[in-house]
Design a protein around this nucleic acid. Sequence first.
DNA 1: TGACGAGGAGTGGATGGCTC
DNA 2: GAGCCATCCACTCCTCGTCA
Length: 465
Amino acid sequence: MIRRRGSLRSPLRPFRPVCAAGGPSAPALRRARPSLRRSRALPHASRSLRRSLAASRPLRPSVRIRRRPSLRIRRRGSEPAHALPPPVGRPDPPPPVPPDPPPRLRAGPRAAAAGGPSGGRTVSRAVAPCITSAHRLEEEGCKDHKSEAHSKVPTLASSSTGSCSPPPVCPYNFRHKRHKAPAKMNNRASWDEPTTKILLEMCIEQKNQLNWSDRCLTKLGWRNVHSRFRAATGLQLGMKQLQNKLNNLRRQFFGWRALENSSSLGRDTQTGGVSADATYWEQEQQDTQARSQPHSVKPPPFLDLLFELFGHEPQDRGTLLSAGGIREGTPSMGTEGNFVDLEDDPAPATSARFSARAKSKRPVREYSVDSPTKKRSDNLEQYIRDLSDSVAKRSLLRAPSAHEQLNRCLEILKEDGIEQGSELHNQAMFSCGQSSDCRTTFLGLDTKAARLSWINFYWNMMHKK
DNA sequence: TGACGAGGAGTGGATGGCTC
DNA sequence: GAGCCATCCACTCCTCGTCA
């Protein structure tokens, strides 16, 4: 049996154009040249592995440890005796902070809603001994403490990699409530649809200009978006506010898409909502009579733009084949009869939040390609034959080639009555010929109106009308 | 009361600099 | 070149404030 495993996360850092754009400094050049980066990245990776083995501890898990809501750890407000000196370079001394209120349990809406781990808080594995001085700086009134805290004290993240010098143990308050931040909502963002659309379009523009790393815009991309957004809208929003908005849209999009995929439903191309046959809604109505649909499953606005932005993330660049488990009857998630398409992977989609997280970490996917029962366990030739058969079967299930897709597009256009040589026909063929994404989306649409709308949208998008 | 936005905490990976 | 540590970066999760 050959197990198809999800794509491996590259140990190499993705190239960040912003680094190279900063100037011809040596670090920038090293970052810009993968061959130079490799020289350090691989030794570091092997070093990390050796460290883990030497310390007889497992490698860092890829998922965070969750605890019950009531176990959320917060630190005590009292100042540790060994407080670090105040940060340098901050002109205005922070105002005195009133003493913290007595500790209490916080039971927010999430805690109330969380009957189990799904609503739990995220807690560091080593949070107890790790008071972050960033937190202390915050309480001293330093609003923008992150960079300074980063540069002066070990953070939890850094201490996890630095095995020799854990930060000093400090007293903690397990139920400390963060003191109220002063109400400074003067520049509160108010996102209406046109503004959101402008933001998305600018993000897509930056993505097309390759100012895009794994999952998001690069720093340079954000700078560009920020400046252009200000120029276009006149709104004086900060970069963080733009990032927050995009983050929320992204979460909405993945949540909605996860629901769409995991529930075997479809997308109503007319309304942007979830489509299904009548029997599904009847069943659903019985199941959910007492509860309404949560907001997170509502289709987010500008689905097409979001799909353009997040619909094809780099972790979906394909899957790898790895041979293994031939001898054992490895449990399989799918067989020839129930083969699951990669795009419809329901595995990571248990919830909106989880799915958004799963998307970010190139989830491991396992698919089985069942092979016939082996006649002889030590027959290498038989193994090779099985392997070849499996690959051949997979080839039969592969996606159609670009040429085949283009031919299919031609047929559909003909069926839709789009005259060859017309402007619309030319636009459609040009767009489909240029982009596999455009082609795939075009072929996936069910109605003529949706197809024409898509071509029109794609054409305008590419030519910035 | 729920939706939404802001912001902090913490995570994981990559890389730079220093020392041996 | 390896080991160690610090730093940077982008991300998710969570809490809290505001507002309709």
